[in-house]
Design a binder for these strands. Structure first.
Lengths: 292, 292
DNA sequence: GATTGTTCTATCTCACGATGAAATACAATA
DNA sequence: TATTGTATTTCATCGTGAGATAGAACAATC
């Protein structure tokens, strides 16, 4: 029983998603060539993914005939094998908590977290893209924590105020009805479920998906990319944020009101509401609770 | 006579700049520790840079006493050793011209351009940040040329329209008088000099510096970063662009009018003019001359 | 004829060691 | 005592080769 590679795990998940999308029933035969074409890879990793699913009892090989679906696969088959993002968050947190020095070498990071050099370089490069760290002149890296978090917060909100409301008014704007519905359900569920500290991350991600989804709907790739970037930045400074439930309620209500107007294609009002929503969020988060 | 390293060349240039800024005269003694502190590196590379300047007859060592300035250093000592950017431009051009296949492996790029793997990975990663290329699932990379260049052009201009005029109205906006003056001079020189095809790149860079300078003056790091990013993108698609001189004249006039208003701190009019300027540029460049 | 099974080649990733350069500590000198 | 000269240590980059995996071609089976 081979350990599946990163790509194979990924493909396994995507195959499960395809099976769901296609509405296949137990007993259906999967086709290696077809899957390979749809997934834009060769047959080899597809076979690896299928072998992995076989180990899990999702499919069964029928020699020379195909691969039969023998169980309805659960939605999130495997945790989407952990990304570098985990490390980004962890390192950013360690730095904020003071357990990492402000200046650091690649080797130190390698030893400290037990990573190989290539991974460390990728991670530090990504942190550099986010302006959380910079290369020192000779060698080593320097955290820019001091300069962030102070003025940055306001600049970020002003930046978003310029883009997000305008996104809804872009000529190419188009939002799928299904997206609106799914998003509304997620908000309702968040409101219905009992609140606990650990919901913070899920709440943050719902929030990020809401704003990113609207930006994506603008069909302007630069607006979309800019908002995605903002979300990444906020992810670092706010994962530790402890939201009070009152704040969650207000936030969801505002989001849902915007969704209502968008469902009726009333983009102008939605844009205004979104502007106010961001302005309010800016004030609340600026009021000092943020532990950043 | 050792060949100076990349860092040492860089430091040599910065030392020359410091000497100029400090207004030091011939005969002044430079101090290794002080330079190392100001340049945020250790003494070792500073010594390398000084040895390099010594070879050029700019300074002379006085054993155990210091390093004496013996000549007024010319402004641009050494061409700032070539960046990866050269390769980005070249590869982007090769791809557009069709001499690169749409899908390509790292190894092919290595062989073709005689680069080592690390460099190729850096270059491809940067192209990926610019959405000019993406990683394929298994291995290899795929150029995204087809999707760019068509709608992208409009989206880019609309994106800039949202940010650049607003940049001038940011609360933290502040523009140095010296910057305005220097920029005005560059524009005057461009208009005065006889125009030739080869001026295209210089004209583009002046243009980019103008827009980026205004974005930087907003003192909003996100606006600044976004515009810098836009400039990088445009650099690839427009380096080959052949500007007619009429267009150059109009462009410079519009820029200078904006500078005039900014010199009087009339930001609102400047913002309006900037909006119109971008709108016009959008139309002209969309009219089909662009060979992208 | 289409699909899976098998084999072979090409490509990437990782680890190791050599090399050159930067950082640091210490000695020498004004 | 401050500054340069010298030696040692630490670090990052580059090249190489082994191992794993993706891609592609061919054979076998229904």
């Amino acid at each position: 029983m081979h350990q599946p590679s990163r790509l194979q795990q990924d493909l396994a998940n995507r195959i499960v998603a395809l099976v769901n999308d296609d509405g296949l029933a137990v007993g259906a035969l999967l086709n290696e060539n077809g899957l390979a074409r749809r997934l834009a890879v060769s047959r080899t990793p597809v076979r690896g993914a299928l072998r992995y699913l076989e180990d899990q009892g999702i499919v069964a090989r029928r020699p020379n005939r195909g691969v039969e679906l023998v169980a309805i696969p659960p939605k999130a088959q495997v945790a989407p094998a952990e990304d570098h993002d985990e490390w980004l968050v962890r390192i950013a947190r360690d730095q904020r908590s003071g357990s990492l020095p402000q200046e650091i070498t690649e080797g130190e990071v390698m030893r400290r977290y037990g990573l190989n050099r290539a991974s460390v370089q990728r991670i530090l490069s990504r942190l550099a893209e986010l302006d959380m760290v910079e290369r020192k002149a000779g060698y080593g890296w320097r955290f820019l924590a001091g300069t962030r978090d102070r003025a940055t917060h306001d600049e970020s909100y002003r930046f978003r105020l310029l883009l997000e409301p305008a996104a809804l008014l872009e000529p190419g704007f188009h939002l799928e009805g299904a997206w609106i519905e799914a998003m509304r359900r997620r908000h309702e569920e968040t409101l219905a479920r009992p609140w606990q500290e650990s919901s913070s991350v899920a709440f943050f991600e719902m929030n990020a998906d809401f704003h990113e989804g609207l930006a994506a709907a603008s069909n302007n790739r630069f607006i979309h990319a800019a908002i995605r970037h903002q979300n990444q930045l906020r992810r670092f400074s706010q994962y530790d944020w402890k939201f009070g439930f009152e704040r969650v309620v207000v936030n969801c209500r505002e989001h849902m009101e915007i969704l209502d107007h968008l469902a009726r294609n009333d983009r102008e009002v939605a844009s205004l509401l979104l502007r106010r929503h961001i302005e309010r969020a800016s004030l609340i988060r600026a009021s000092g609770t943020d532990p950043g």
